[in-house]
Design a protein around this nucleic acid. Structure first.
Lengths: 202, 202
DNA sequence: AACTGCATCAAGAAATAACATTGATCTGGT
DNA sequence: ACCAGATCAATGTTATTTCTTGATGCAGTT
């Protein structure tokens, strides 16, 4: 019957920032005030197509996915986000426009969220965060570009191998259907690829 | 990979109102405009402690539960809501104050929701709904009172038996853990009670 | 025309998670 | 000392999710 949770202080988040640049007491205080904890359960939507993305999310534990569903009903995963990473639909968040993407939880997931409004306040009252978030975005940008390149230049098998390398921390946590939707192949074909790998090794 | 849904018209809701008091075409129109369909999957939150309850929910199919988690982490279920019933945290809804309660789905559940704002509009443009919702609330109030009385005056076994009677339509649909949390006993003890009943009958 | 790289569909198998039962032991109130 | 009920741990039982496999199809190569 224990279903309690959510009573968590902002520590993991503060630790995260601190590893970036040490924060002053005041800044910590600000973070604690402006970020709100929230629990999403497996399969729960964090953002649904058509809604405006109004929260910037930091995952404390669990795992989220951001994806698009095409006209045929197929799911294409843009990003997995597990512990100590950020996620939102930047376009929708900054443009305040309806999102074409969905975000939902692959596991029970605890996040800290900051609203657009509060983020602006954070920037104003502690300009240091401009730097922090700039670096964050730059990192994300780089890995996005890398992935794009990967994608347009490789076969399914190559993409699979590369995924296994880059996401080694997630590969035994994610269902294969989800990996397939990330790599861009059918789950059945992924199953066959893995099979082949195993056989090749013996 | 098909994850589409939600294309339902407002019919079940209109039927429901119609059985109460026949609606005019205009009123039907209003209902269709102001209530929005929404699908919650099993275990998804409809309302989370600390949020303001901004929607009045009518369950079309599936089942919701409203509950409180106490300091020890124990869950106490206030209400189950299945087909053709209403659910929300009235206090939070009207007072626009953060709720102390949670609502989540015990099955995949389809609801029609009306926001506070739109409900006011509904009352203004079709005063007949004042009557309808008054009667609704009165009914709920009566059964709540009944339950309270039950609760303070009976042993676990009596409460169990009474539950089985009053909720006969739900008893083979709800997991026993949930019934236990409603009746206010441990799931183990509920299991023993049932066992006893079975034996008593033979 | 045949071959390669993938998709789709359907059916089972395997793994995991949710739920239920049972025994043992404990507790607070009569 | 007894009763109503809790708690803990182990085990059994379903369901649900995930994975694999075979059959078949199709669009581009070769």
């Amino acid at each position: 019957m224990k279903e309690n949770l959510l009573q968590t202080p902002t520590e993991p988040l503060l630790d995260y920032f601190n590893r970036f640049i040490p924060l002053s007491g005041e800044e910590k205080q600000l973070v604690s005030e402006l970020f709100k904890p929230r629990l999403y359960r497996k399969r729960q939507y964090v953002l649904q197509e058509g809604d405006i993305c109004v929260q910037f999310n930091f995952v404390v534990r669990g795992c989220l996915r951001m994806y698009k569903i095409d006209e045929k009903g197929n799911t294409h995963i843009i990003q997995f986000t597990a512990e100590n990473w950020w996620l939102m639909d930047i376009g929708s968040f900054h443009g305040k426009t309806p999102s074409e993407l969905n975000i939902d939880a692959l596991e029970d997931t605890m996040v800290f969220q900051i609203s657009h409004e509060n983020l602006i306040e954070l920037y104003t009252r502690a300009p240091k965060f401009n730097l922090i978030f700039r670096v964050l975005i730059e990192n994300s940008f780089v890995s996005l570009q890398k992935r794009l390149l990967q994608n347009i230049s490789s076969t399914a098998e190559e993409r699979y191998l590369s995924f296994m390398q880059s996401y080694s921390h997630l590969t035994n946590r994610l269902p294969q259907v989800q990996m397939a939707a990330f790599i861009g192949i059918s789950p059945e074909f992924l199953s066959r690829l893995r099979n082949k790998q195993v056989k090749a090794k013996s």
